[in-house]
Write a protein that binds this DNA or RNA. Structure first.
Length: 471
RNA sequence: GGCGGGGUAGCCAAGUGGUAAGGCACGGCUCUGCAAAAGCUGCAUUCGUCGGUUCGAUUCCGACCCUCGCCUCCA
């Protein structure tokens, strides 16, 4: 079955074919975090989405090289560094470490490369020089270097590949900064920003004087260096379509490094934004969640991941605490089923049962219909539970079912529920309750049950005996 | 003003020109000393409104209403 993905370039669903169809090698790039603060749940929707793409490509037999950049120099960071009076790297390092911790918590596989903007200054300068040489960029009176949209379009290149742009109808104004007065045209964007006093220690030497990279250029420089001038997949949040990705295309194709006829990026994918509790996330509404806000409420990374993966990536998704509670119950349903399968399978081994895997894959082949894929999983859980209840499953069949789940979970990445060790004193209490029940001393049995509950453990009386579960 | 999404049960969310997946919540049942947990099971004559095309539309077309996003450094 062929994988089909929506491509922002064509605004339609296309079969995914890598630039080199025979190699099974896929280069993918996702615009990563700007490490000036903790990443929020909306950011993570995009990164979990990117992780899904990467995992599914690998499931389909592609070898991926996944690059996610870390933007560690930018206006907000410079502002914070100045306030905090600490070196740039010290400041960004803290948030970067937190970011990777969160990413891990959410079950995202680490990207193969996580390049930093500040470590690619020579490449960035070289790219800007190339653009100046080709006549597409100019040094302005303020010593910054800008990319000229007019010149670019004059060469027959298309500015506005990812969205329809109508320059006459565009509202210019509010967000055009006053220090951009030296641009030849409002549409032009900075490749290199000349040093200003507020930058403090944050600057690098360049042929145009001291300064720092513009926003878009880092992604062009890093992606082309690590994946080549033309690569397969570029992902990001939908807000990056314009101007960031459009400008990336302009710079990268403007530099003319691609083999003739090949685009900078073959396939662009964008994840939709998140609503939180039905509203756009904002600090003043109190619905601005960073991962820690959620984990401190007792939700786990896998539950958050599950919820983030419960809707199609191109749909706005309403992220709610109620939804997280539902995610908790849903995952528990899967966990229960898996636990029973494991018990039955014992040491048996078997190849994966293809029914689940194929139906799952059919769903994801359709532009990553992850909701449909979960539907397949839950149908499978119900069928499995039925068989389990009927005792109609052999250990080998159980092993095949587990193997199938592992295959599916290589994409979903929710893994298994973390094992909770039951403290021995609690097991002792449980034994006492069992003894009391046997003696038909139900009063005492219920007292022990309450006691355990007060300690945060619930007793599960199953036909195979009692066991303890964390509340 | 320009461009682009979306409106499917109490909530979240798939999907299809042929009569509505899945999850949560809720009800019933099984199990149990009673519970809980777990499992099974039930739960949209209907897909924003009004028209049109069609043997047949939630799915295609048109109009309208509502809602959300982007329009120069926000995932």
């Amino acid at each position: 079955m062929a994988l089909k993905l929506f491509n922002t370039l064509s605004r339609s669903i296309e079969e995914f074919v890598p630039l080199d169809p025979d190699s099974k090698q896929v280069g993918m790039y996702c615009c990563g975090p700007t490490v000036y603060d903790s990443a929020h749940i909306g950011n993570f929707r995009t990164f979990v989405f990117a992780d899904l793409v990467r995992r599914y490509l690998e499931f389909k037999g592609y070898r991926t090289r996944f690059v996610m950049n870390i933007t560690d120099v930018e206006d907000k960071i410079i502002g914070r560094v100045r306030e905090a009076k600490i070196p740039l790297r010290e400041y960004t390092g803290k948030y970067e470490a937190a970011f990777f911790e969160d990413l891990k918590n959410l079950g995202c596989l680490p990207p193969h490369d996580t390049p930093h903007a500040t470590e690619f200054i020579p490449e960035i300068i070289a790219l800007v020089e190339k653009l100046i040489t080709r006549g597409l960029a100019y040094k302005a009176a303020d010593s910054s270097v800008y990319f000229s949209i007019d010149k670019y379009r004059g060469c027959g290149c298309v500015y506005g590949q990812l969205l329809k742009l109508n320059f006459d109808e565009m509202r210019t104004g509010e967000r055009v900064k006053s220090d951009d007065y030296s641009k030849e045209s409002v549409a032009d964007f900075a490749l290199w920003k000349a040093r200003v006093p507020e930058d403090g220690d944050v600057f690098w030497p360049s042929p145009w004087g001291e300064g720092r990279p513009g926003w878009h250029i880092e992604c062009s420089a890093m992606s082309m260096k690590l994946l080549g001038p033309s690569f397969d997949l570029h992902l990001g949040g939908e807000d990056l379509i314009f101007p960031h990705h459009e400008d990336e295309i302009a710079q990268s194709e403007g530099a003319g490094l691609q083999p003739s006829g090949q685009p900078f990026v073959k396939h662009w994918m964008h994840g939709a934004h998140l609503l939180v509790e039905g509203r756009k996330m904002s600090k003043s509404l109190g619905n601005y969640y960073v991962l820690h806000d959620l984990t401190s409420k007792g939700f786990t990374g896998r539950e958050i991941r599950f919820l983030l993966l419960s809707a199609h990536y191109r749909e706005t998704f309403n992220f709610t605490v109620k939804g997280l509670e539902g995610a908790q119950t849903s995952l528990a349903r899967i966990d229960e089923c898996l636990a029973k399968l494991r018990e039955l399978a014992g040491n048996s081994q078997a190849p994966p049962d293809s029914t689940l895997v194929e139906a799952f894959s059919r769903a994801l082949d359709e532009d990553l219909n992850v909701a449909g894929a979960w539907g397949v999983v839950f149908d499978w859980v119900r069928d499995t539970n039925r068989h389990l209840a009927e005792n109609s499953l052999t250990p080998v069949q159980a092993a095949a079912a587990l193997a199938a789940w592992n295959r599916v979970d290589s994409v979903l990445g929710v893994g298994a529920a973390p094992e909770t060790e039951v403290p021995t004193e609690l097991t002792a209490l449980l034994d006492q309750r069992q003894a009391a029940r046997k003696a038909r001393d139900f009063k005492r049995a219920d007292v022990i049950r309450e006691e355990l509950k007060a300690k945060g453990w619930v007793i599960e009386d199953t036909p195979k005996g009692a066991r303890l579960k964390r509340l």
